[in-house]
Design a binder for these strands. Structure first.
Lengths: 146, 146
DNA sequence: TTGAAATAGTTGCATAACTAACTATATGCC
DNA sequence: GGCATATAGTTAGTTATGCAACTATTTCAA
């Protein structure tokens, strides 16, 4: 490979999820150690429902940046775990509203706590300013590719 | 959710692969448009073999940050595509050396070109300094969780 | 030298992702 | 009203990831 190739691109290997999957893996491990049988992906759906309950699947696609089949199956699994429930919308029967069950609501406090602890572990030695740079870069990268 | 919760943690949703998967998805699309039938994950393995051919599977695990089953299966698929070949190491028969075939070698130039174009698209409006911050933050995050 | 421990790799099972093709319901124009 | 089109969601098939349990080979120490 020519040496002048892929200079900026070494960011690819960085951006491409090494740190991200390390964070996800640690959070998953912390869930497991706490006896919680949910995946980080399921958690990320619940996270948006805790902010606003009874979203449509399409809205969950938008907010979690997932496609429709992915959300269908995540909701399937969350429903099997009795953490959410699909409710057909009266005014438009194409739409499923995804609503938290009591069990789903009860997970919020404990898992947010674990997520905070995980992020604190991950971000040791990282300043607020650096975090802002990362967020801003990622927003631009995302917008560039949308 | 208490409002003071998860303040730093909004980085979670950022770090958690939204920008990263957007990049990967675009690269995958660019491969497909160019008529290349490989996944970005397969490409990331080839990438390390182009730098240094005939690595052991364990070494590929280290360099790509994947676990052994993942590498086993990626190599299975790359072998099925006739892009690499497993060669038992003479001095230590536990070890498979993964070596590029001619077809595998020939993919290098074109795909690196596509990867560069993809990264240039992704990084429009992002400065060298910002890239360095992101890389440095991600390195620290990774080290914190290792 | 032989048997325990370490190392390299594989397999089985579950979850998740993407694409493409599909069903069902709603909208809107003629 | 009726049909084309758009929108919401599901299903099928392939690939990838994580974990746990497994086989094969090597190392090392009693």
């Amino acid at each position: 490979m020519p040496n002048n190739q892929f200079k900026r691109g070494e960011l690819y290997s960085v951006i491409n999820s090494v740190a991200a999957t390390a964070v996800a893996r640690r959070l998953q491990k912390n869930f497991r150690n706490a006896g919680l049988d949910i995946t980080v992906e399921q958690w990320s759906v619940l996270y948006h429902l805790w902010k606003e309950d009874c979203l449509s699947q399409q809205e969950l696609c938008n907010r979690t940046f997932r496609d429709k089949p992915s959300i269908t199956r995540l909701i399937d699994n969350l429903e099997r775990l009795s953490l959410v429930q699909r409710v057909a919308k009266k005014e438009d029967r194409r739409i499923n509203l995804v609503c938290l069950t009591d069990a789903g609501k009860q997970l919020q406090e404990m898992t947010i706590q674990l997520a905070n602890e995980t992020m604190n572990e991950a971000l040791i030695g990282v300043s607020k300013e650096e975090i802002e740079v990362v967020k801003s870069v990622f927003q631009r990268v995302y917008d560039n590719l949308i």
